[in-house]
């Protein structure tokens, strides 16, 4: 894994990302803005499921308003994330936080998509439309995307968070 990181680090593209001083902070900033959109979209969808916001709208309407933003922001987040990995491969691959975050992003994206498939066409308006399982899943998705943000920041402090040598390739 770290040999791959060393190879990636030495590629011309990676060297370019490292050499231009503002590229990494700019990519990180875009990355943070995008997770903000993904996170808040999940929060609004979950609060709607809990009957706290947009109670006069159907789930279909709320989903139609926020899912496309969440999806697009997720794509930009993945692109900027990929560029950050190319720019600093050793930093990411050696961090447990990075791998945990990737796992949670996969669960979060597929969980959100599954939620949309299950309820995306629901046209009913009014309270108590969602079973307890759906309300629980909605809250779970907020917690999960929140954890993605915390783990993202923890990449810079991986040894402090988890100790040294927790990954087999370190």
């Amino acid at each position: 894994m770290m040999a791959f990181a060393a190879w990636l680090h030495a590629t011309a593209f990676s060297q370019m990302i490292q050499a231009v001083r503002w590229i990494i902070p700019l990519l990180q900033s875009i990355h943070i803005v995008m997770i903000g959109i993904v996170f808040v979209s999940s929060v609004v969808i979950a609060l709607h499921v809990l009957g706290r916001v947009r109670a006069e709208e159907s789930f279909q309407a709320v989903w139609g308003r926020f899912a496309p933003w969440s999806r697009t922001a997720l794509v930009v987040m993945l692109v900027t994330g990929l560029l950050l990995v190319v720019g600093e491969p050793a930093r990411e691959f050696s961090a447990l936080s990075f791998w945990l975050k990737m796992g949670l992003v996969a669960i979060g994206a597929s969980g959100t998509a599954a939620f949309g498939r299950r309820y995306g066409a629901a046209k009913a308006v009014g309270a108590a439309r969602f079973p307890a399982s759906a309300r629980l899943a909605a809250v779970g998705l907020i917690v999960l995307w929140g954890a993605v943000v915390l783990l993202g920041r923890a990449i810079a402090y991986d040894v402090e968070m988890w100790g040294a040598g927790v990954l087999p390739w370190n």
Binding site: I32, E160, M161
Partner: peptide
């Protein structure tokens, strides 16, 4: 504290991302 900085910084980013996302709406 070894974990204070990452946890506080992570919460700061989460809070800022929420401020931005909600204000954007």
């Amino acid at each position: 504290s070894v974990k204070a900085m990452p946890l506080v910084e992570g919460t700061h980013v989460l809070a800022a991302a929420t401020v931005f996302g909600t204000i954007l709406i």
